[in-house]
Design a protein around this nucleic acid. Structure first.
Lengths: 343, 343
DNA sequence: CTGAAAGCGCTTACAG
DNA sequence: CTGAAAGCGCTTACAG
């Protein structure tokens, strides 16, 4: 059932059917109505593959990807890029193309956004690390009919936006149950946060809230020490914290970010042992701690999947008129030593 | 860079290039060599989308899917079917079609295999529940150049085969770490197996082995009681087991199959509490136990993903000449109450 | 052994 | 407002 049969049934040419399907002007009300009725009755749907075959050479679907720089400690951001490249190579025959851009602060972010709008892109994939700038981006995008998908983090914005990310509050609850299972009500818990010079702390805060909320549901009464800690590579525990660790002997630590491996090293140096640790992200250092049983669990945000789904969802939106969900949930993937390699 | 440019560079027609690309006969050694060289130099790759556009209407890729019946307690098998349907609807414009067939024992399995080989299929997706019959299937398939992918379970077979499944031994280890984290060295462990009138117990056995192996690595000394239990819907614990449960008060039970919810009900009836339980599969009953905190963890075999990947991998093999991996690992997905809904 | 033509389902100028 | 024709990259009869 193709455009040709529809045309025959309606006694028109395929050009006219095409105009109706794409809501292009230049068709009489009457003809349009007739064609729409036949499309309805026959259940015709456009063959996107055939459509893209033609368009691939004359009208590419263009994505702008604006992510943090991927140098050194920020090489986490290579992962969504990897997922994006996977999706693009699957869809390259359909005529999709990507430009990668990077920022290092709100200023360069704004600059790159401006640059993006000087060219013609069908969609933009980025992160909502700067609230004001994200709102501006959405405003501009709305005017130009450009779709925007935010990865990694969900924040409140003025315009309706699309997020592909893990529910961080929920991930915090998962961490809560996992750590509580190991520690129970006997020991104290410590939450370690990180302050980030690059952008938002939203995910970290949401994880902390979820963690605390879980402990509430199991009626954990003791106070949870929650430290907001700025972790650099030359990380040192404050003397206050060391004292607390040595006197209170906490049994479980929840690191709300990707730096749990640094904590492991610091604890080792201080000779503090017998602590259960849960962190985030499968970076090399964390993985090695997991293998050495210095970290119990890692929660994987699946950044590769986030990037992959961004392209797939946007392509389906643009080429197949599928609706973009406001929130696309990335599963909360729990990793321990034994399911690391097969994942 | 298409077939047209290659043809021009080689001073031949596109028909001849096509013959070389598909290794069809009727091209002189010389011309073939010339064309292959140009393909090599230009890095040309076939546009599968365009290729399938034409072939979709004249030469469909046909899959035969032979799975257990999906009635009542076997409705687990609706899930791979769901995944298969997802993949097929993604690829329908590429001209793929599926026939679903079902078996209830080795006899009907053989019968359906015979029926499959009376028609022309490009590939067969099934489960390796009967060793002899699986070997026969592989032999027949090899003769007819038909690809075979086995889901769910991995077994040793005479011919080279392809499996899309979770590594069950590894999944047992994961279960070991999770349960050990909750129970430690204090209590006894119980492993509950199931005997299945429908087919193999291979997955269950492998999970049990992995579980025991994990406990060995943490130097768990006590003997693990391993019961092979045939669970029907009117499940009753044997008096021997009840006595053991009441005297030894085990702290952790590993159910190597999908029926942990039945155990939960039985324990409730006997008034036995305070036991940590880990099982497999997200069936409705198990999910409800997870929500009520009567089961601690479930390991998800991701049957929908298994079915989806079977079609995708086979399509890529047939349409894009990608190699089929011997073992495609489905991640060992750990589910607890808090990551149930967002998964 | 090789080429020219028709066609897969859709899109786009162009002509009227 | 509408249609006929050319073309996206590839495949397949058919002709020679």
């Amino acid at each position: 059932m193709g455009i040709k049969q529809i045309a025959k049934l309606a006694n028109v040419s395929i050009g006219t059917v095409d105009r109706v399907i794409h809501k292009r002007p230049g068709v009489s009300k009457e003809t349009e109505k007739k064609i729409l009725k036949i499309i309805e009755e026959t259940g015709y749907t456009k063959n996107t593959t055939a459509s893209r075959l033609k368009l691939a050479s004359i009208k590419k679907i263009k994505f702008a990807v604006l992510l943090p720089e991927t140098k050194k400690e920020w090489n986490y951001w290579k992962l969504p890029i990897q997922g994006i490249n996977n999706a693009v190579s699957e869809l390259k025959e359909m005529g999709v193309a990507v430009d990668f851009l990077h920022f290092k602060d709100s200023k360069t972010y704004s600059k790159e956004i401006d640059a993006i709008f000087l060219k013609e892109y069908n969609a933009i994939i980025t992160v909502p690390f700067f609230k004001t700038e994200s709102n501006i981006l959405l405003q501009k995008a709305a005017k130009k009919q450009t779709s925007v998908v935010f990865l990694d983090t969900e924040i409140d914005l003025e315009n309706n936006a699309h997020f592909i990310r893990q529910n961080s509050r929920q991930a915090g609850k998962v961490a809560g149950r996992l750590l509580y299972g190991l520690v129970g009500t006997d020991g104290e818990y410590l939450i370690i946060n990180k302050q980030n010079d690059k952008g938002t702390l939203v995910n970290n805060t949401q994880r902390e809230e979820g963690f605390k909320e879980f402990l509430k549901t199991v009626h954990y009464k003791k106070e949870i020490l929650s430290k907001s800690y700025y972790l650099k590579n030359d990380f040192k525990l404050s003397s206050e914290l060391i004292t607390w660790l040595k006197t209170k002997t906490p049994k479980g630590i929840f690191v709300t970010n990707s730096k749990s491996h640094i904590l492991v090293k610091a604890l080792k140096k201080e000779g503090i042992t017998n602590i259960q640790i849960i962190g985030f992200d499968l970076n090399e250092d964390n993985i090695s701690c997991l293998k050495n049983e210095e970290i119990n669990f890692l929660i994987n945000q699946q950044p590769i999947l986030q990037g992959y789904m961004a392209i797939k969802n946007l392509f389906n939106h643009i080429a197949k008129q599928e609706t973009l969900k406001t929130n696309y949930n990335i599963p909360i993937d729990i990793i321990l030593k034994e399911n690391l390699l097969t994942s």
